[in-house]
Amino acid sequence: MVDTQQGGFKRVWFITGASRGIGALIAEAALADGNAVVAAGRNVKAIVERLGESPALLPVALDVTDEAQAKAAVQAAVEKFGRVDVLVNNAGFGLLGAVEESADKDVRRMYDTNVFGLLNVTRAVLPTMRAKRSGHVINISSIGGYRAGAGFGVYSSTKFAVEGITESLYAELKPLGIHATVVEPGYFRTDFLDGSSLIVAPEVIDDYDETSGAVRRKATQMNHNQPGDPKKLAAAMLKLVDAPTPPLRLPLGTDTLAAIAAKNEYVTQETEIWKELSGSTDFAD
C-alpha cells in the first residue's frame, strides 16, 4: 500500500462519471490543484484519452450499478493511493418527458444509476473514510433536486432521493469527522441535454403539449446555450473541499438560487394558507 502523503498529493479524489462533462472537468481541476484522482467510468480508454496519463491519475472501470465493481474500484484506489479523501458521486443521466410519458424501463434504468448506483459507490467508500475519521462525500444533485417541474418529474424524483440521502449522511457522518454535501447545479453548458446524457421519452401525449411539451422545446433551444460555465463549477468544487466547514447544500448558478427562492416563497405562502387544517390533526389531549 502506498501512503498518499509520500506521493505528495493534497487529497485523493474518487470521481464517478469522469470520462466527460462535469466529471472530467472536476478531475482536471483536482489534478491541476495537486491532488490524486481516481477517475471512474464505464470506458477506461475514454478516461485516458480525456485526462491523459499521470502518476496522480488512476483510471478505473466502473458501472456504478454493479456493487462488486464499486468495491473493486475502491480497493484499487486504496491500494494505489492509500485512502480516499473526497468522493464525488457524479455519474447519472436525465429523462425528459411528462410523468405519464416516462416508460418503466427508462425510469428503472435511471434510478439504478442515479440513486442505487450512488448508494453502491458510497457504501464502498465509507469504510475507508470511517477508518481515517475524515473525508468528504459530495453528491451531485440538480436544480431539479430542490424543485420539480413539468417535463423533468421522474428525473427530479431521483435527485430528490439524492437530497434526502445526503441530508441523512450529513447527520450520520458529522460525528465521525466526515463531511457530506449535496451540490445543486443549475443549467450548465455541458452535454447534459444531448442524447448521450438525456433520454427523451419517445411517447408524446398531446394533452401535455403546453407543459412538458413546452419544456421539450425549450430544452432543444437551450442546449449548449445554458448560462452556467462548467469550468467555474469545477473550480467551485475545489473551494468547497478546501472549506473548513462545508455546507450541507451548495447551489451553483443564479438560476438555481432563483429557483430555491421561488420555491421557498411558495411553500411559505401555501403553508400559511393551510396551517389551520394542517394543525388540526393532533390529538386534543
Results as ranks from 00 to 15, higher is better:
253 G>K: 05
240 L>K: 03
235 A>F: 02
232 K>C: 06
231 K>N: 15
235 A>S: 13
224 H>K: 13
232 K>Y: 01
228 G>Y: 03
236 A>C: 11
238 L>F: 08
222 M>F: 00
223 N>A: 14
241 V>I: 00
239 K>E: 14
232 K>H: 12
233 L>E: 07
245 T>H: 11
236 A>H: 00
230 P>D: 09
245 T>E: 14
247 P>H: 10
243 A>L: 13
236 A>V: 09
238 L>Q: 04
239 K>M: 13
245 T>Q: 01
221 Q>D: 14
225 N>G: 03
231 K>F: 14
248 L>T: 05
255 D>C: 04
240 L>M: 03
234 A>W: 07
245 T>P: 06
251 P>Y: 08
252 L>A: 02
222 M>K: 02
255 D>T: 08
225 N>H: 07
247 P>M: 02
237 M>T: 03
241 V>T: 00
222 M>N: 06
230 P>S: 04
225 N>P: 08
238 L>K: 05
227 P>A: 09
232 K>L: 13
252 L>P: 03
245 T>K: 13
234 A>G: 11
239 K>H: 13
235 A>M: 13
241 V>N: 05
228 G>I: 10
242 D>Q: 02
228 G>L: 03
235 A>C: 03
249 R>K: 10
233 L>M: 06
238 L>H: 11
228 G>S: 05
222 M>P: 12
223 N>E: 14
238 L>A: 11
236 A>S: 14
237 M>L: 15
246 P>I: 04
255 D>E: 07
227 P>H: 11
250 L>D: 07
243 A>K: 05
253 G>Y: 01
242 D>A: 09
254 T>L: 15
233 L>D: 11
248 L>N: 04
225 N>I: 08
223 N>H: 15
221 Q>H: 11
254 T>D: 15
224 H>N: 10
229 D>Q: 02
232 K>D: 09
223 N>Y: 13
242 D>I: 02
223 N>L: 14
226 Q>T: 12
245 T>F: 05
249 R>L: 10
239 K>D: 14
240 L>N: 01
253 G>L: 00
244 P>K: 04
235 A>T: 12
251 P>I: 11
240 L>V: 04
251 P>K: 06
249 R>Y: 00
234 A>M: 12
242 D>H: 01
251 P>H: 05
255 D>Q: 08
221 Q>L: 14
224 H>W: 15
232 K>I: 05
232 K>G: 08
248 L>W: 04
249 R>A: 02
252 L>S: 00
229 D>N: 14
255 D>W: 05
237 M>E: 02
248 L>C: 07
246 P>W: 11
232 K>M: 09
248 L>D: 00
255 D>A: 03
247 P>Q: 10
235 A>Y: 12
229 D>G: 05
233 L>P: 08
236 A>F: 03
226 Q>C: 04
230 P>W: 06
239 K>R: 13
231 K>V: 01
243 A>S: 02
237 M>G: 05
223 N>R: 15
235 A>L: 12
235 A>P: 13
229 D>S: 09
237 M>Q: 00
254 T>P: 12
242 D>S: 09
232 K>E: 03
252 L>F: 09
248 L>R: 07
253 G>W: 00
250 L>E: 10
239 K>S: 15
